[in-house]
């Protein structure tokens, strides 16, 4: 098969841009699953919720979707704190997170999806913003702004989160709680409070990721399911809880998906991430940058 350089370069660029967006989608899971060991499979549900909030406000007031994502951050933070509290009291405290905790999050995912279907139907929804339809060309390279803007914003978010986790007191406490909860208690810090904060942050990232998602593609409620595989594949491949690892793995998955879509057709897309996940679990469960 003859492959033109043009096609190859553009597939690579598209993959990198897609990967930047995937990193934003996954970073919440890297915090909740990777650091806190909470298997929040409802994460994509929260992302779709973020997308719909961006859609409603954008349709009503014409605000920029990514600005809406930033404004909605505190609301998602609060939602995350409440969710963690329920999870902690009902499951973690009783030591039942393995079976019933998973079922709880699965139920949440399902409820979000069905509620959104009941309210909005299964029509595809999209947002209007200045950069959604524009694109620039640099020689061979095409840069659609609807991919570039989310990718850059996502990189910014990851950088801020990495700084927060490594440089601030609370960030270091979050990293500590994943290593030794008891030791943290001996330092007179409340591990539950720290974990609640970390989980709330992980849900807050959904507000941004949801806004990015609806900028990139039109959405409908059940689209979240496609992302379950992606986020866990990236999180595991990136080495559970490492933000640089998450970014590298996200870029990798973005490139592989973009190449698959370009050369084999987009209908094979969903299988790529899951195949990668199964492969990682079988070959190297510790991931690329695993501890």
């Amino acid at each position: 098969m003859y492959v033109s350089a043009d096609l190859l370069v553009n597939a690579l660029i598209a993959g990198l841009l897609l990967g930047g967006f995937y990193a934003a989608v996954t970073v919440g899971i890297s915090v909740s699953f990777g650091i806190l060991d909470i298997v929040n499979i409802a994460h994509p549900g929260f992302i779709i919720l973020g997308s719909y909030i961006a859609y409603i406000v954008n349709a009503q007031f014409g605000l920029d979707p990514i600005v809406i994502g930033i404004i909605a951050l505190p609301a998602f933070y609060a939602l995350g704190a409440v969710t963690y509290q329920v999870y902690y009291v009902s499951f973690e405290k009783r030591g039942q997170e393995a079976l019933r905790g998973l079922a709880f999050f699965f139920g949440l995912l399902f409820i979000t999806e069905v509620m959104l279907i009941l309210v909005f139907g299964v029509d595809y929804r999209y947002v209007n913003a200045a950069y959604v339809d524009t694109s620039y060309s640099l020689g061979l390279i095409h840069l659609p702004m609807r991919m570039v803007v989310p990718c850059l914003m996502s990189l910014l978010m990851l950088a801020l989160l990495q700084l927060f986790l490594t440089r601030t007191f609370y960030g270091r406490a979050i990293m500590a709680v994943s290593q030794d909860q008891l030791a943290l208690q001996l330092m007179a810090a409340d591990p539950i409070k720290i974990k609640r904060m970390a989980f709330a942050i992980s849900i807050a990232t959904c507000s941004m990721a949801g806004a990015f998602l609806i900028v990139i593609q039109p959405i409908e409620p059940s689209i979240g399911r496609e992302y379950i595989g992606r986020v866990f594949a990236i999180c595991v491949l990136g080495g559970l809880g490492s933000i640089p690892g998450t970014l590298i793995a996200a870029m990798l998955l973005g490139i592989v998906e973009s190449f698959t879509a370009t050369f084999y057709g987009p209908s094979w897309g969903p299988a790529v991430s899951f195949g990668l996940l199964l492969l990682t679990l079988a070959v190297r469960p510790a991931g690329l940058l695993g501890r």
Partner: peptide
């Protein structure tokens, strides 16, 4: 493939299995 790891990985792998098989059938 997955039961030697922690329980959560098995759960995630089964979610993955459904999507992989669906893509194959499609």
């Amino acid at each position: 493939l997955t039961l030697r790891l922690r329980g959560a990985f098995f759960a995630i792998a089964t979610l993955a299995l459904a999507v992989v098989l669906q893509t194959l059938v499609v």
